[in-house]
Design a binder for these strands. Structure first.
Length: 408
RNA sequence: GCGGAUGUAGCUCAGUGGUUAGAGCGCUGGAUUGUGGCUCCGGAGGCCGUGGGUUCGAGACCCAUCAUUCGCC
């Protein structure tokens, strides 16, 4: 018996947006929801109690990082991801596909990092020498960024590792794609991702049977839609994943805000309505979250809020501030006067400015609490606005404050 | 008092007679989208202690002077 289901509780007419309840053995997630990034089985700078207090419903960790350290077997021996990290709630794991992919792109970050070796030109050749990963039809071979040791991930290995780690929701092993990859490479890669999804499903079902026999709870599998920016391929990929009988879907390979109203929409239009959709790694900007929900996304994960918090970039509904700026040195007001987070209720900009300048770790904690609350709370508000049918106004007024055109 | 050492960016210091004097830190602004990340990218800031001299040319060499510092009577 699978202790897992997704229920839609309301829909917003004329859009793909909906609210729902994702039930897992470790608890429920009211969707749309912002899933908190916990890559290495920890939400950086925060205790699980702090994550819970700021409204976090679920945490997403990464198979790639945990397989290298401490090892999936250690997490399993600890009783699974949630028990290991003392998180009393639902968890997700990413498959490691994205890391295997980004490792293959040498050192560059951002869009650049996903560009080179898929372009098939001279730049790719130049970079391939430095690549830490190589993709073949069976899987990915890569070198650990920690110690250089040779590692291998295939769909089967990723599934086994994810069952060991024991999150409530797993991602199928996929190859992430650069939006700038050549069409030839996109087609080749998409065929591989689809074959890998089928293999992921077969191995996942086999492992579920084993676990079920041992009296252990179900862990869900999401198929991951790729297809870069090509509409026919995105729709084809979504249909393919829809046919796999997975528990939900991930949408990967989305990198720019402008792709949400196209790429995400194409995918969600093809996906079955009754299963949840997770947008992988996207949602740095306020507009991303509104648009993602509008075009059918139920859950987001994005490390940007915690990462930026650690570097002093703090979110408000009127835009981002850099708390290190001199102008905050004697500013004894909260980061955001409208914000109800623990940090804004108890600390001033001047104090947080001081903590950052003095390189004190409490600065990272207070900033992370604020930014993560901001993201989680904003998606919560978006959820409420769908239920009381005020989404359009809420979106319009929020984007207007940021001077963003509503036509996005 | 005698002898030595050192005076270059806010700080610690490179700069071996030759374009427009550099670095690290600090200061200042920006970036960050399935975390290879306390990371990355910009910018401002100098009568090179002072005064003379040698030289085509001095932050560098010479003299004087002031300051700091160490050692010795």
């Amino acid at each position: 018996m699978k202790d897992y289901h997704f229920t839609i509780t309301s829909k917003l007419p004329g859009t793909l947006a909906r609210t729902g309840l994702l039930h897992t053995p470790h608890g429920d997630i009211a969707t749309p929801a912002f899933i908190v990034g916990g890559t290495k089985a920890t939400v950086k700078a925060l205790t699980p109690e702090q994550v819970r207090a700021l409204g976090g419903q679920a945490v997403l960790a990464n198979t790639y990082h945990l397989m290298l350290r401490p090892g999936a077997d250690v997490v399993e021996a600890a009783g699974g991801l949630a028990a290991f990290m003392h998180w009393d709630g639902p968890t997700f794991t990413d498959s490691g596909g994205f890391q295997a992919f980004s490792l293959g792109m040498a050192y560059k970050k951002g869009i650049d990092k996903v560009t080179h070796s898929q372009r098939g030109d001279a730049t790719a050749a130049k970079h391939s020498a430095k690549q830490l990963a190589k993709v073949d039809d069976d899987g990915v071979t890569f070198r650990s960024h920690l110690d250089g040791s040779l590692q291998r991930l295939t769909p089967e290995v990723s599934m086994r590792l994810q069952w060991q780690i024991g999150a409530d929701v797993h991602m199928a092993f996929d190859e992430a794609l650069s939006p700038l990859a050549s069409e030839a490479y996109i087609r080749e890669s998409l065929a591989r991702t689809h074959a890998w999804a089928e293999r992921s499903k077969v191995e996942h079902d086999r492992l579920w049977a084993e676990h079920q026999a041992a009296g252990k709870p179900y862990q869900a599998l999401f198929g991951v839609v790729q297809g870069a920016r090509i509409e026919s391929l995105r729709r084809e990929s979504a249909k393919f994943m829809a046919g796999l009988d997975c528990d939900g879907f991930g949408i990967g390979g989305v990198y720019e805000p402008g792709e949400i109203s196209s790429v995400v929409r194409w995918a969600c239009e093809e996906l079955p309505e009754d299963k949840p959709r997770h947008l992988l790694g996207m949602g740095n900007q306020i507009s991303d979250l509104f648009l993602g929900v509008e075009y059918g996304i139920d859950t987001f994960d994005c490390v940007a809020f915690t990462r930026q918090a650690r570097n002093g970039a703090l979110y408000t509904l009127d835009g981002r501030i850099n708390i290190l700026n001199q102008k905050f040195q004697r500013d004894f007001s909260p980061i955001d006067a409208e914000c109800a987070c623990y940090t804004c209720q108890n600390y001033t900009r001047a104090y947080i400015n001081h903590l950052f300048r003095a390189d004190e770790i409490l600065g990272a904690t207070l900033a992370s609490i604020h930014n993560e609350y901001f993201a989680v709370h904003l998606v919560e508000q978006i959820r409420a606005s769908i239920m009381d049918n005020s989404f359009a106004q809420f979106k319009k007024s929020s984007l207007k404050r940021l001077s963003i055109d509503d036509e996005l």
